[in-house]
Design a binder for these strands. Structure first.
Lengths: 196, 196
DNA sequence: CGGGTTCTGCAACGATCGTTTCAGTATAGA
DNA sequence: TCTATACTGAAACGATCGTTGCAGAACCCG
């Protein structure tokens, strides 16, 4: 065989993911990606084919290492009663720590939803699928909390909660305090149902 | 004095606004703005100073001619009982007509919230103020509908409704159907309170 | 140790970006 | 009509964009 790769692929993807998360796809430049990954553009193009190819891999990494770990308790076979509250509280804590990537950058996928690259059908599908995944997990958490089979009311509460999470991410950059408050609102909506 | 301007300033701003709305600030190119406005870049720079200057004026135009007319019934001295429902229905109708600018482009300000230019403090403030304005109008509509002085419950409902509207705009490009459903959810949340 | 393959650094590519310069044209006031 | 001023068109500016070609260095395998 031949010369071996001098870098860990996952590390490179993570570094690129951070850049895309912070600046978005369009504004992320090749020099920026070079310094962040520590690789020359030759290696980047040799490995990922194009800036877009690197972005696609970074998005998958974001889903696998950022999104899904947070949703995991909501996707278990038997969801804990308060898992949905725990999820919202975790997210809110992240938003309140202004140094956390979620607070300063929002969500990589929600950000791309409003950017030019969202006109690409494949990208739009990935973002839309992400929303569906989020909705499904939140729906599981809500029904587990309510302790009853899904009803029109519980479905509406799940829709609303999902929307508030999306809105929180959308506003994270410009109004992190309001983003945090939206998650607080989502929490109260859920606990209010139990009280009734 | 001297030679008179050969164009209508408001028309130019509207044309530029459409471009920024569709493509975002960063991706909007000067040649694109030239053809859309029918002006040479010399005239654009002579009139607005820079691309950013034109963007700022376009944003104000968006607020004055797109956002505020829609919110007007909610900002009246005495808000109609069902004004908030009318607002949500109008918005939902716009989302369901895929040719409408709101459906295909979402909201100019929400889109910029997740874009690189949102790092600019002034831009961030404008977007944040827009959210506050939206929240206030929706709050007026919600309390008018409930026919009672503001309570913690009504405030929470207003927060939630505002969040759902923001989320609908954020998802408009990639999942217009879901955006429409979010507004339907917002409507149901409000009408459900009355039933209780 | 040598051959074959892969990885990587440097340099340059054409294209496009936002902005500026400048000459020329058209108009309002004297 | 003349002049001063403002508007507009064409061209070019330097900078940066994503991408590619190529030569050399590094490594595994026989």
């Amino acid at each position: 065989m031949a010369r071996t790769q001098a870098f860990e692929r996952d590390d490179v993807v993570r570094a690129a993911r951070t850049v895309f998360w912070r600046t978005g796809f369009d504004a992320a430049s090749i020099p920026e990606l070079e310094t962040a990954t520590g690789l020359n553009r030759s290696s980047l193009y040799n490995t990922f084919g194009s800036k877009r190819g690197l972005f696609d891999v970074a998005v998958q990494s974001y889903l696998d290492e950022v999104v899904r770990p947070r949703l995991r308790p909501l996707r278990a076979d038997r969801v804990e009663h308060e898992a949905i509250l725990y999820y919202l509280d975790c997210l809110r804590t992240a938003f309140e720590n202004l140094d956390s990537p979620s607070a300063s950058n929002g969500c990589l996928l929600i950000n791309t939803a409003g950017s030019p690259i969202a006109r690409d059908e494949e990208v739009a599908r990935i973002v839309s699928d992400y929303r569906s995944e989020l909705r499904e997990a939140i729906g599981a958490g809500v029904t587990a909390f309510m302790g009853a089979p899904p009803s029109p009311e519980s479905e509406r509460l799940s829709d609303s909660t999902t929307g508030l999470v999306v809105a929180a991410f959308a506003l994270a950059r410009v109004a992190p305090g309001e983003a945090s408050r939206l998650l607080q609102t989502a929490r109260e909506q859920i606990t209010a149902v139990r009280a009734a």
